[in-house]
Design a protein around this nucleic acid. Structure first.
Lengths: 127, 127
DNA sequence: TGCACATCTGCAGAACTGTTCATATATCGA
DNA sequence: TCGATATATGAACAGTTCTGCAGATGTGCA
């Protein structure tokens, strides 16, 4: 695909070729990176972890994350745009829920890992 | 813990309390977000996916990711600082390997998901 | 010893991100 | 209908992030 790949010498061209062969396409990489990026902000992450147990409304989410309601709303908008969360409106409240099974798996894995790490290194815990 | 939590009215104070109770500590959230953040850049992600199969040297990684060798080195430095990758030096080459079991799990899960999605929606594939 | 090569590093500019502030929309109750 | 409440939105600003460049380090070979 790139006949000019020789601008730099390769140490192990065969490995490079085989890695390239099994590498997901650019678009898939970009999409996946987007998802990880959404989980890469501590506030957003906390918000999503809160939603693991079920739907919550904006002001409750704001209280949990310590974020202003405006910031919470902006964060939720971003997550909504990526279809990670969904909304249910009831009167003047908006109840958000985690709506992406893959993200849920990633979150479960991550939370389990922190609990596991916590169990093995309790000295790292904090109030 | 927060006697002043009443600056905003809560819709479901009990849920908020129970979510807060099972919420990981701020430090764990921050650490987890850091990890996700590292995976949130497409170049870095591609780099790490390349390392799933075994160690590779900097110039091969640069060739795979399409990144300049300088940018590759910067990215690897960041990953090294977070102990996600490790180095083995051999002569003037530096061979990097994926060194974090948790990150490996996240990557495996993500790659499996893109392959699964690919299988269900082949129209989204690209050359 | 001197040169070529592989990698690393600091710096600076560009691009991106997250927050706040101000304001808009929409719903409920009086 | 009016006012209070809940959420949404846009603009702007501060802080962060990524990349390229230039130069440094260190290794191998002649």
């Amino acid at each position: 695909m790139q006949p000019d790949a020789c601008n730099v010498r390769l140490v192990d061209p065969e490995r490079v070729a085989s890695v390239n062969a099994r590498m997901p396409g650019e678009e898939d990489i970009a999409d996946t990176a987007d998802v990880f990026g959404l989980l890469g902000d501590p506030r957003r992450l906390k918000l999503l972890v809160a939603l693991l147990d079920g739907e919550l409304c904006v002001c409750d989410l704001a209280a949990i994350t310590g974020l202003s309601e405006s910031a919470t709303s902006h964060a939720l908008r971003l997550l909504r745009a990526h279809r990670v969360v969904g909304v249910r409106r009831d009167g003047r409240n908006a109840f958000y829920r985690l709506d992406d099974a893959h993200v849920r798996m990633l979150l479960d894995l991550a939370v389990a890992h922190t609990e596991h790490t916590e169990a093995m290194h309790p000295e790292r815990s904090e109030a």
